[in-house]
Design a protein around this nucleic acid. Structure first.
Lengths: 207, 207
DNA sequence: ATCAAGTCTGAAACTTGTTCTACATTATCC
DNA sequence: GGATAATGTAGAACAAGTTTCAGACTTGAT
């Protein structure tokens, strides 16, 4: 029904034991919890460690910096969102409309936890080179969501991939302007819809 | 020759004395200097203060946080760039081509001081609500540069403004992915060119 | 010239991300 | 089951952004 979508997973270098997996979960949960309350600033490493029942040193062994932690948190949340979005695929006829609908749905989901969104997005854009692999994973996840929404019959062309990248850029940046109170939701909607026009423009079936 | 472009300036609440203006300049200069060396991390408030020959408390009176300082630095650099770009307007026939050319020129200018670019852009996207006015000024400056490059005869339509916003989003976000080593210059170029197609798409003279 | 208000300085204190150390616990391998 | 390496813990220590404060200096009005 739609082009094959490769699973986006982390390589998970050394397999974790059960207790380690549980620790990791507890940490991510604590991180999301604290972020939901007070955003980026409220995610304090000592508090995360305490809430997760883990020593500070251990927290740093699992996530080498606050930004790593929050980017991993975003990865986690995006996974959820991806599976949720997949359950009810968008209804529009045109790929552009479907992508716009999907992104606005994702946007409304983030609206429900604006502080959490703030923490994750700020971490994402603040990340430096040392976090590139993790940020890349998030980027691939986002790409997967958009491609999924397009519902292509064939693998995307290079042009389409470029359009998707631009959509991603717009998505992140629009999110930031909204989170920092410099753009209204209506404006974000317009921007998303505007950029989604690029999809039709780069569709190989265009007349 | 082109639609009127309002000057983009800060309101400059209380007029500064000469010595204060000089201090402000020294601070911004020190900030840019340090940023050029080691990027965001190298701009340490104590060092900026010392290099500018000013007490730490004074630095904080002029710029209430490191992010404020770097955003102001960006404002400053953008002003320069704007006047520089204006000297030799882009040559293309189509507005889209002119905008793409202008942005790539700006991009190459930033390439010459990648660390400085890093510091400014990271600060810009990391800025929270307390920096909104300053970030807004930067945004207006960027918009002015793009509108200038378009060389419109008439004031832009709402659709065009939306396209310009999307271009700005893409510009910032693409810059970030390049700065953090996740995208090549070639890729940035493609993304810029892709998004600039929106300009033609939203041109009122379209057939 | 003088007084008051506002500004600047130098230095210390405080906060939070990050690193380090000495020791305890757990896992792995023989 | 015991040696041993890896992992986890508690807590101190360090780094850099931010705040605070007492005293010195400028400035503007009278």
């Amino acid at each position: 029904m739609s082009a094959e979508v490769k699973a986006v997973t982390t390589p998970a270098s050394p397999p974790l034991t059960e207790r380690q997996e549980a620790r990791r979960r507890r940490i991510l949960h604590a991180s999301a919890q604290l972020a939901s309350r007070g955003g980026f600033d409220a995610v304090q490493m000592r508090e995360v460690a305490e809430a997760a029942g883990v020593a500070l040193g251990t927290l740093y062994r699992y996530f080498p910096s606050k930004v790593h932690l929050l980017v991993a948190t975003m990865q986690d949340q995006l996974q959820h969102m991806h599976t949720t979005l997949r359950k009810r695929p968008p209804a529009g006829d045109e790929p552009a409309a479907r992508v716009a609908e999907t992104l606005m749905r994702a946007f409304r989901a983030l609206q429900r936890e604006p502080q959490l969104a703030d923490a994750m997005v700020r971490a994402l854009t603040f990340a430096d080179r040392s976090v590139s692999p993790e940020v890349d994973t998030v980027s691939r996840l986002t790409t997967a969501i958009i491609l999924d929404a397009m519902g292509l019959e064939h693998p995307p062309t290079a042009e389409q991939l470029s359009a998707v990248r631009v959509i991603e850029h717009t998505w992140h940046s629009a999110l930031i302007t909204w989170l920092s109170g410099r753009a209204s939701i209506a404006q974000v909607k317009i921007d998303i819809e505007t950029v989604c026009r690029l999809i039709d423009l780069t569709s190989p079936e265009k007349s």
